[in-house]
Nucleic acid binder design. Structure first.
Lengths: 114, 114
DNA sequence: AAAACATTTCTATATTTATCGAAATGATAA
DNA sequence: TTATCATTTCGATAAATATAGAAATGTTTT
Protein backbone atom coordinates (compact mmCIF):
# COMPACT_ATOMS: atom_id res chain seq x y z
CA UNK A 1 0.00 0.00 0.00
CA UNK A 2 2.86 2.38 0.81
CA UNK A 3 3.96 2.21 -2.84
CA UNK A 4 0.57 3.39 -4.11
CA UNK A 5 0.34 6.09 -1.48
CA UNK A 6 3.80 7.35 -2.39
CA UNK A 7 2.72 7.67 -6.04
CA UNK A 8 -0.57 9.39 -5.20
CA UNK A 9 1.14 11.74 -2.74
CA UNK A 10 3.74 12.60 -5.36
CA UNK A 11 0.96 13.58 -7.76
CA UNK A 12 -1.00 15.51 -5.12
CA UNK A 13 1.02 18.70 -5.28
CA UNK A 14 0.25 21.54 -7.68
CA UNK A 15 3.84 22.20 -8.72
CA UNK A 16 4.59 18.50 -9.16
CA UNK A 17 1.48 18.07 -11.27
CA UNK A 18 2.61 21.01 -13.42
CA UNK A 19 5.98 19.28 -13.81
CA UNK A 20 4.35 16.02 -14.88
CA UNK A 21 2.22 17.80 -17.46
CA UNK A 22 5.30 19.57 -18.82
CA UNK A 23 7.23 16.31 -19.03
CA UNK A 24 4.28 14.95 -20.98
CA UNK A 25 5.14 17.47 -23.67
CA UNK A 26 8.88 16.84 -23.61
CA UNK A 27 11.78 16.07 -21.32
CA UNK A 28 13.18 19.03 -19.39
CA UNK A 29 16.17 20.04 -17.31
CA UNK A 30 15.81 21.63 -13.88
CA UNK A 31 16.50 25.14 -15.11
CA UNK A 32 13.74 24.93 -17.74
CA UNK A 33 11.22 23.71 -15.19
CA UNK A 34 12.38 26.37 -12.71
CA UNK A 35 11.93 29.05 -15.33
CA UNK A 36 8.35 28.05 -16.10
CA UNK A 37 7.31 27.37 -12.52
CA UNK A 38 8.91 30.54 -11.16
CA UNK A 39 9.92 29.01 -7.84
CA UNK A 40 13.36 28.39 -6.30
CA UNK A 41 15.43 25.83 -8.15
CA UNK A 42 16.12 24.01 -4.88
CA UNK A 43 12.37 23.57 -4.52
CA UNK A 44 12.09 22.22 -8.05
CA UNK A 45 14.92 19.82 -7.36
CA UNK A 46 13.14 18.65 -4.23
CA UNK A 47 9.91 18.04 -6.16
CA UNK A 48 11.82 16.12 -8.81
CA UNK A 49 13.38 13.85 -6.22
CA UNK A 50 9.93 13.10 -4.81
CA UNK A 51 8.61 12.21 -8.28
CA UNK A 52 11.72 10.15 -8.95
CA UNK A 53 11.51 8.36 -5.60
CA UNK A 54 7.93 7.42 -6.48
CA UNK A 55 9.13 5.99 -9.80
CA UNK A 56 7.14 8.45 -11.90
CA UNK A 57 10.11 10.09 -13.57
CA UNK A 58 13.70 9.20 -14.39
CA UNK A 59 16.69 11.30 -15.35
CA UNK A 60 19.69 11.12 -17.63
CA UNK A 61 22.77 13.31 -17.94
CA UNK A 62 22.89 15.54 -21.00
CA UNK A 63 26.07 17.60 -20.98
CA UNK A 64 25.97 19.94 -18.01
CA UNK A 65 22.26 19.35 -17.63
CA UNK A 66 20.17 16.62 -16.11
CA UNK A 67 17.25 15.68 -18.30
CA UNK A 68 14.08 14.53 -16.57
CA UNK A 69 11.46 12.49 -18.37
CA UNK A 70 8.33 10.49 -17.59
CA UNK A 71 8.96 6.85 -16.76
CA UNK A 72 6.67 5.39 -19.41
CA UNK A 73 8.56 2.10 -19.56
CA UNK A 74 8.15 1.05 -15.95
CA UNK A 75 6.83 -2.30 -14.79
CA UNK A 76 5.00 -0.63 -11.94
CA UNK A 77 1.30 -1.34 -12.44
CA UNK A 78 0.20 1.76 -10.52
CA UNK A 79 2.33 4.10 -12.56
CA UNK A 80 1.21 2.33 -15.73
CA UNK A 81 -2.34 2.93 -14.58
CA UNK A 82 -1.90 6.58 -13.66
CA UNK A 83 0.24 7.97 -16.48
CA UNK A 84 -2.27 7.25 -19.27
CA UNK A 85 -5.03 8.80 -17.15
CA UNK A 86 -2.94 11.90 -16.51
CA UNK A 87 -2.32 12.22 -20.24
CA UNK A 88 -6.03 12.90 -20.71
CA UNK A 89 -6.42 15.10 -17.68
CA UNK A 90 -5.90 18.84 -17.30
CA UNK A 91 -5.13 19.54 -20.92
CA UNK A 92 -7.68 22.34 -20.82
CA UNK A 93 -6.48 23.68 -17.50
CA UNK A 94 -5.46 27.34 -17.86
CA UNK A 95 -2.33 26.95 -15.77
CA UNK A 96 -1.25 23.86 -17.69
CA UNK A 97 -1.94 25.48 -21.05
CA UNK A 98 0.10 28.54 -20.07
CA UNK A 99 2.95 26.34 -18.83
CA UNK A 100 3.09 24.29 -22.03
CA UNK A 101 2.98 27.42 -24.13
CA UNK A 102 5.81 28.98 -22.17
CA UNK A 103 7.75 25.73 -22.36
CA UNK A 104 7.61 25.83 -26.15
CA UNK A 105 9.66 29.02 -26.21
CA UNK A 106 11.89 27.99 -23.32
CA UNK A 107 15.33 26.71 -24.18
CA UNK A 108 18.10 25.69 -21.82
CA UNK A 109 20.64 27.39 -24.04
CA UNK A 110 18.88 30.73 -23.60
CA UNK A 111 18.60 30.22 -19.85
CA UNK A 112 22.32 29.69 -19.46
CA UNK A 113 24.91 32.43 -19.70
CA UNK A 114 27.47 30.79 -21.95
CA UNK B 1 -6.50 21.55 -11.42
CA UNK B 2 -7.55 22.07 -7.80
CA UNK B 3 -10.34 19.56 -8.31
CA UNK B 4 -7.92 16.82 -9.41
CA UNK B 5 -5.49 17.65 -6.63
CA UNK B 6 -8.26 17.47 -4.08
CA UNK B 7 -9.18 13.98 -5.29
CA UNK B 8 -5.57 12.77 -5.36
CA UNK B 9 -4.89 14.26 -1.92
CA UNK B 10 -7.98 12.58 -0.56
CA UNK B 11 -6.69 9.23 -1.79
CA UNK B 12 -3.13 9.83 -0.54
CA UNK B 13 -3.74 8.89 3.06
CA UNK B 14 -3.43 5.35 4.39
CA UNK B 15 -6.58 5.41 6.50
CA UNK B 16 -8.63 7.02 3.75
CA UNK B 17 -7.40 4.42 1.26
CA UNK B 18 -8.42 1.69 3.72
CA UNK B 19 -11.85 3.32 3.93
CA UNK B 20 -12.21 3.40 0.13
CA UNK B 21 -11.26 -0.27 -0.14
CA UNK B 22 -13.79 -1.15 2.55
CA UNK B 23 -16.52 0.82 0.81
CA UNK B 24 -15.66 -1.13 -2.32
CA UNK B 25 -16.87 -4.21 -0.46
CA UNK B 26 -20.00 -2.60 0.95
CA UNK B 27 -21.38 0.62 2.37
CA UNK B 28 -20.51 1.29 6.01
CA UNK B 29 -21.46 3.54 8.89
CA UNK B 30 -18.89 5.49 10.88
CA UNK B 31 -18.88 3.09 13.80
CA UNK B 32 -18.13 0.11 11.56
CA UNK B 33 -15.23 1.90 9.89
CA UNK B 34 -13.98 3.09 13.29
CA UNK B 35 -14.07 -0.47 14.61
CA UNK B 36 -11.99 -1.85 11.74
CA UNK B 37 -9.54 1.06 11.55
CA UNK B 38 -9.06 1.23 15.33
CA UNK B 39 -8.66 5.00 15.45
CA UNK B 40 -10.78 7.71 17.08
CA UNK B 41 -14.23 8.09 15.57
CA UNK B 42 -13.68 11.85 15.27
CA UNK B 43 -10.67 11.08 13.08
CA UNK B 44 -12.73 8.73 10.92
CA UNK B 45 -15.42 11.37 10.60
CA UNK B 46 -12.77 13.86 9.51
CA UNK B 47 -11.42 11.48 6.87
CA UNK B 48 -14.94 10.84 5.60
CA UNK B 49 -15.60 14.55 5.19
CA UNK B 50 -12.40 14.89 3.15
CA UNK B 51 -13.45 12.01 0.87
CA UNK B 52 -16.95 13.46 0.61
CA UNK B 53 -15.65 16.96 -0.12
CA UNK B 54 -13.59 15.47 -2.95
CA UNK B 55 -16.72 13.81 -4.32
CA UNK B 56 -15.40 10.28 -3.87
CA UNK B 57 -18.07 9.16 -1.44
CA UNK B 58 -21.61 10.11 -0.52
CA UNK B 59 -23.77 9.38 2.48
CA UNK B 60 -27.37 8.60 3.30
CA UNK B 61 -29.24 8.37 6.58
CA UNK B 62 -30.17 4.87 7.70
CA UNK B 63 -32.02 5.03 11.02
CA UNK B 64 -29.64 6.35 13.66
CA UNK B 65 -26.68 5.68 11.38
CA UNK B 66 -25.13 7.48 8.44
CA UNK B 67 -24.27 5.11 5.63
CA UNK B 68 -21.27 5.98 3.48
CA UNK B 69 -20.79 4.57 0.01
CA UNK B 70 -18.60 5.07 -3.04
CA UNK B 71 -19.88 7.65 -5.50
CA UNK B 72 -19.93 5.38 -8.54
CA UNK B 73 -22.58 7.42 -10.32
CA UNK B 74 -20.77 10.73 -10.46
CA UNK B 75 -20.26 12.78 -13.59
CA UNK B 76 -16.78 13.74 -12.44
CA UNK B 77 -14.34 12.42 -15.03
CA UNK B 78 -11.45 12.18 -12.57
CA UNK B 79 -13.40 10.12 -10.07
CA UNK B 80 -14.75 7.99 -12.91
CA UNK B 81 -11.14 7.45 -13.94
CA UNK B 82 -9.80 6.67 -10.50
CA UNK B 83 -12.48 4.44 -8.97
CA UNK B 84 -12.16 1.64 -11.56
CA UNK B 85 -8.37 1.73 -11.15
CA UNK B 86 -8.67 1.50 -7.39
CA UNK B 87 -10.96 -1.47 -7.75
CA UNK B 88 -8.06 -3.43 -9.22
CA UNK B 89 -5.44 -2.10 -6.85
CA UNK B 90 -4.41 -3.35 -3.41
CA UNK B 91 -6.66 -6.38 -3.37
CA UNK B 92 -3.65 -8.46 -2.35
CA UNK B 93 -2.45 -5.96 0.21
CA UNK B 94 -2.22 -7.61 3.63
CA UNK B 95 -3.76 -4.66 5.44
CA UNK B 96 -6.64 -4.44 3.00
CA UNK B 97 -7.28 -8.17 3.11
CA UNK B 98 -7.35 -8.09 6.91
CA UNK B 99 -9.69 -5.09 6.88
CA UNK B 100 -12.13 -6.71 4.47
CA UNK B 101 -12.08 -9.93 6.44
CA UNK B 102 -12.78 -8.07 9.68
CA UNK B 103 -15.51 -6.09 7.97
CA UNK B 104 -17.33 -9.29 7.04
CA UNK B 105 -17.91 -10.11 10.69
CA UNK B 106 -18.54 -6.51 11.71
CA UNK B 107 -22.11 -5.44 12.23
CA UNK B 108 -23.41 -2.09 13.39
CA UNK B 109 -26.00 -3.83 15.56
CA UNK B 110 -23.26 -5.61 17.49
CA UNK B 111 -21.27 -2.39 17.87
CA UNK B 112 -24.18 -0.50 19.41
CA UNK B 113 -25.40 -1.00 22.96
CA UNK B 114 -29.13 -1.29 22.37
C1' DA C 1 44.11 23.71 -13.25
C1' DA C 2 40.78 27.24 -12.81
C1' DA C 3 36.43 29.28 -13.83
C1' DA C 4 31.66 28.76 -14.78
C1' DC C 5 27.48 26.97 -13.82
C1' DA C 6 23.56 23.36 -13.40
C1' DT C 7 22.12 20.67 -9.83
C1' DT C 8 21.79 18.83 -5.20
C1' DT C 9 22.08 19.06 -0.29
C1' DC C 10 21.62 21.50 4.02
C1' DT C 11 19.32 24.50 7.41
C1' DA C 12 15.58 26.92 8.82
C1' DT C 13 10.75 28.29 8.71
C1' DA C 14 5.85 28.58 7.89
C1' DT C 15 1.93 26.02 6.56
C1' DT C 16 -0.74 21.99 6.31
C1' DT C 17 -2.39 17.78 8.11
C1' DA C 18 -3.53 13.68 11.05
C1' DT C 19 -4.78 12.78 15.40
C1' DC C 20 -7.32 12.68 19.86
C1' DG C 21 -10.58 13.86 23.60
C1' DA C 22 -14.32 16.59 24.83
C1' DA C 23 -18.27 19.10 23.78
C1' DA C 24 -22.11 19.87 20.64
C1' DT C 25 -25.61 18.16 17.47
C1' DG C 26 -29.40 15.70 15.90
C1' DA C 27 -32.27 11.94 15.52
C1' DT C 28 -34.28 7.71 17.48
C1' DA C 29 -36.52 5.14 21.11
C1' DA C 30 -38.71 4.70 25.48
C1' DT D 1 -40.25 14.81 26.58
C1' DT D 2 -36.43 12.72 28.16
C1' DA D 3 -32.70 9.54 27.61
C1' DT D 4 -29.74 7.38 24.49
C1' DC D 5 -26.37 7.21 21.25
C1' DA D 6 -24.17 7.77 16.44
C1' DT D 7 -22.05 11.40 14.37
C1' DT D 8 -19.95 15.89 13.83
C1' DT D 9 -17.55 19.88 15.40
C1' DC D 10 -14.15 22.13 18.27
C1' DG D 11 -9.64 22.96 20.39
C1' DA D 12 -5.16 21.55 20.96
C1' DT D 13 -0.96 19.17 19.58
C1' DA D 14 2.49 16.67 17.08
C1' DA D 15 4.19 15.30 12.66
C1' DA D 16 4.73 16.03 7.80
C1' DT D 17 5.49 19.10 3.94
C1' DA D 18 6.54 23.04 0.75
C1' DT D 19 9.50 26.58 0.44
C1' DA D 20 13.70 29.57 0.15
C1' DG D 21 18.55 30.83 0.51
C1' DA D 22 23.13 29.38 1.14
C1' DA D 23 26.59 26.06 0.84
C1' DA D 24 28.33 21.94 -1.40
C1' DT D 25 28.94 18.95 -5.45
C1' DG D 26 30.31 17.66 -9.83
C1' DT D 27 30.94 18.41 -14.58
C1' DT D 28 32.08 21.13 -18.59
C1' DT D 29 34.81 24.50 -20.84
C1' DT D 30 38.62 27.49 -21.33
Amino acid sequence: MDEVLKILKALSDKNRMRIVKMLQQRSCCVCELTSVLSIANSTVSSHLSILKEAGIIEDVKDGKWVDYYLNTRTNNAFINGMLPLLAFWLNNDEQVKADLQKLKTTNRLDLCKM
